[in-house]
Amino acid sequence: MKTIIVGGGKVGYNLLKTLKGRDYKVTLIERDKETCKKIAEDFNSDVIWGDGTNLDVLKDAGIEDAEIIAAVTGSDEVNLVTCQIAKVSFHSKRTISRINNPQNIIMFKKLGIDNAVCSTEVIANLIEYAFDQEDYRVISTLERGLMIITELSIRENNIWSNQFVKDLILPKECVLVSIIRGETVIYPRGNIQILEGDKVIVITNKSVLASLVCELYDGGNKKWMLGKKK
């Protein structure tokens, strides 16, 4: 999967470094030529000298094949335009924008930007979690990425399928928030049964989420996810 970063300043540089450390395929776009040279020298990655709001530059960066566009320049206006171009012209799956002025967060969300955040680490985590499967997706992160709100889709072969909430044994770092069944939101109680086709919303952290995904979808050891409470 491919990520495009627009902006090679401190945030873009550190974001590229973080994602390369996680072995992601990343292309960075930066309008300053000297900054491009420095980044290209520091990383074995595709670096393009150009304007991230230019359609031809975005095409050269491979936006048509990109899963995520992260606009992290020092200008909220440039970041907004870049993300809107990615959405409207290239139908990008996910757009993430750095926000320099917190007052712009609500406006960005109303204009269709998937995530508007301030922290480099949060952006990196959002990109990592965005590479999700059809079985689960990260909705949002809280407290600079320490808390993760995730939607888990229940399939026929999931160990949660047809189980009652009272029979689930979860770590203390995981809270079951709600169950979405069609158009209905169910607030979980012990006698609520989880059914195939439900979407279960949980709040957890990074390590527990990895275990949840392993147990539900990758055939993990199922040590702590199901059993009668004593």
Rank of each mutant, 00 (worst) to 15 (best):
G7N: 07
G8C: 04
K10C: 04
V11M: 01
G12K: 01
L15W: 03
T18P: 12
L19A: 05
L19K: 08
G21R: 06
G21M: 09
D23V: 00
Y24L: 14
T27I: 08
L28P: 09
I29P: 12
E30M: 11
E30Y: 13
E34I: 15
K38V: 11
I39M: 02
A40G: 06
E41H: 04
F43K: 00
S45V: 10
S45N: 05
D46Q: 15
V47E: 06
T53L: 02
D56E: 14
L58C: 11
A61V: 12
A66Q: 10
E67L: 13
V78H: 06
V81S: 12
I85G: 01
V88F: 11
F90N: 00
K93C: 03
R94L: 14
R94E: 15
S97D: 01
R98V: 05
I99K: 00
N100A: 02
N100E: 04
N104W: 08
N104K: 10
I105G: 01
M107K: 10
M107T: 11
G112W: 00
I113K: 01
N115Q: 13
N115T: 08
C118I: 15
S119V: 03
E121I: 13
Y129Q: 09
F131H: 15
F131G: 14
D132P: 05
D132F: 11
I139Q: 01
I154R: 04
I159Y: 08
I159E: 00
Q163E: 12
K166G: 00
K166M: 07
D167Y: 07
I169A: 11
L170I: 11
P171S: 11
K172P: 04
L176C: 07
L176M: 12
L176E: 08
E183N: 14
E183F: 04
N205W: 05
K206F: 10
A210I: 08
G220N: 00
